[in-house]
Design a binder for these strands. Structure first.
Length: 459
RNA sequence: GGAGAGAUGGGUGAGUGGCUUAAACCAACAGUUUGCUAAACUGUCGUACGGGUAACUGUACCGGGGGUUCGAAUCCCCCUUUCUCCGCCA
């Protein structure tokens, strides 16, 4: 959540930011938080004064009893009853005010950075870069893309906006969608998954299972090369962790819940791996912390339907390698770019056509300050598939997590920045690999993946 | 799952109702002394929220939550968790 300090000192900027994110009733929400804050402060002043008086009297009583002055002690006791009641009332009011204030703050999303494009929806996302083995290199627009210093050159990025329309690859032969390929090569059995679990829980078989394991190992190895520490966290988390990274309370219905023990199945490794640092004060020299983790991810995906859920496009359980960073505010932007380069490198090594989108204010997640999506092009489905979302949360998550660090310079304790990104989520990568690499003789495995897969083709 | 014993600051650890403003030691940081290193000495050494331009100061926090009391780290209840033993088990 946003800090009170931010809201207090930069009220108008915060409101403008919330409006950029198309948050309804931004001004009212901010005013409400400020009003509750004023209320809380004035109650605290009264309560602190009363408590100070109470402490003073109690101490006196102790001294009087020590001196054997019992009558005077009894007199002093008589003074305390109203005071005691007042304190109790103040405490209740303060708890109430604090709770409403927290509730109000939880309803307010993060504010976007200035380079986030204006806009309401996915239509307004900005393509900042594109690449991949199959993209024609002579298109002038793409030439700009390749020369652009990625991610921070707004002028260059704007020119890329409509590049998708310029590039309409014509497949050499009618390519099959991955659900047909999965059947043809006996890689994935969707019906079997329905039998033993339900829709959205595919069963990977033989080379299909091996491809999963190869991708996981490849992604983890690449992350290790880039200096990430591998974590293997629990796959279920408690409510405190759910609140820490912001899945609770707003996304409660999106997570699977184990009623008996009140635990949630993780929707992403971000949850356990970021919560490692909940309620921690880190030393500045330990930053940036770079962790990666492979986990299964579980999502209820309530409300999804149609072509979006066909095959591997949207699953209830899927494998993902996540990269997570905890950093200082000064360095988090650099960290973000390094993460983007890492993810881009993975897609290049997998030889997939990709584009990178800077999400518009309205399309960003509740908690992000800046977010880039990576999409790969599926030649059989003729559409872009989102395979990674790499975000900087600024202090928004850290504030909720109470994740802070001690500045080396002045020893002050301040909030960290948190960042995370998929590197990568498997299902749509598998879909794109199968669809784009199909030949008459089988499915080609990209060279970088061959050592992990143990073969150059799926036959 | 059953029984018992624990949980105190960055660490070790004292504290069984008011002489605690949580001792002491270690670590850390700053300074003094000193050819250098080391040692010694002195000082600083939590977090959150208030008040104050500031120096400073108030309140809360001893695993978490509730209760008893004028007053709780200390007594009572519930929860979490660690250890030991028993049971079960890959």
């Amino acid at each position: 959540m946003l800090t009170l300090k931010q809201i207090n000192s930069d009220k108008e900027q915060v409101i403008a930011g919330l409006e950029k994110k198309h948050f309804q009733g931004a001004r009212e929400a901010v005013e409400e938080v400020l009003r509750l804050d004023q209320m809380r402060k004035s109650i605290q002043q009264q309560k602190d004064t009363a408590s100070a008086e109470m402490n003073r009297i109690s101490k006196t009583i102790g001294q009087l009893i020590g001196q054997g002055k019992k009558e005077e002690a009894e007199q002093a006791k008589a003074q305390t009853s109203t005071l005691k009641e007042n304190i109790k009332t103040y405490e209740q009011q303060m708890t109430e005010a604090e709770n409403s204030q927290t509730q109000a703050l939880l309803q307010i999303p993060n504010i976007p950075y200035s380079i986030v494009p204006e806009g309401k929806s996915a239509e307004d996302n900005l393509a900042v870069k594109a690449g991949g083995w199959d993209i024609p290199q002579d298109t002038s627009i793409l030439a700009i893309a390749n020369n652009a210093k990625a991610f921070d050159q707004d002028g260059a990025s704007v020119a890329l906006r409509d590049w998708k329309e310029e590039w309409n690859p014509q497949p050499a032969f009618a390519k099959l969608p991955h659900w047909d390929l999965a059947k043809k090569y006996n890689l994935i059995d969707f019906d079997l998954g329905v039998k033993i679990s339900g829709a959205g829980f595919p069963v990977y078989i033989g080379q299909g299972a091996r491809l999963q394991r190869a991708l996981i190992n490849f992604f983890l190895a690449e992350a290790a090369k880039d200096g990430y520490t591998e974590i293997m966290p629990p796959t279920v988390v408690n409510t405190a962790s759910g609140y820490g990274t912001g899945q609770l309370p707003d996304k409660e219905g999106q997570m699977y819940h184990c009623d008996m023990d009140d635990l949630y199945l993780i929707p992403t490794a971000e949850v356990p791996v970021t919560n490692i640092y909940r309620d921690e004060i880190l030393e500045e020299q330990a930053l940036p912390i770079k962790n990666c983790a492979y986990t299964e991810c579980f999502r209820r995906e309530a409300g999804s339907y149609g072509k979006d859920v066909r095959g591997l496009n949207r699953l209830h359980e899927f494998s993902k390698v996540e990269i997570v960073r905890i950093d200082t505010p000064e360095h988090s932007e650099i960290s973000h770019r390094e993460m983007l380069s890492h993810v881009e490198g993975l897609l290049q090594k997998l030889e997939l056509p990709y584009r990178i989108l800077r999400l518009s204010g309205g399309d960003m997640s509740f908690t992000a300050a800046l977010c880039y999506d990576f999409e790969v092009y599926s030649e059989a489905q003729h559409r872009w598939l989102e395979v990674s979302s790499t975000s900087n949360f600024d202090t928004y998550q850290a504030n909720r997590l109470h994740c802070r660090y001690r500045r080396a310079e002045d020893k002050k304790v301040v909030l960290c920045h948190t960042l995370n990104g998929s590197a990568l989520a498997l299902p749509r990568i598998v879909a794109a690999l199968l669809e784009n690499n199909q030949t008459e003789n089988g499915i080609r495995i990209p060279a970088a993946l061959q050592p992990y897969f143990g073969a150059d083709m799926i036959r």
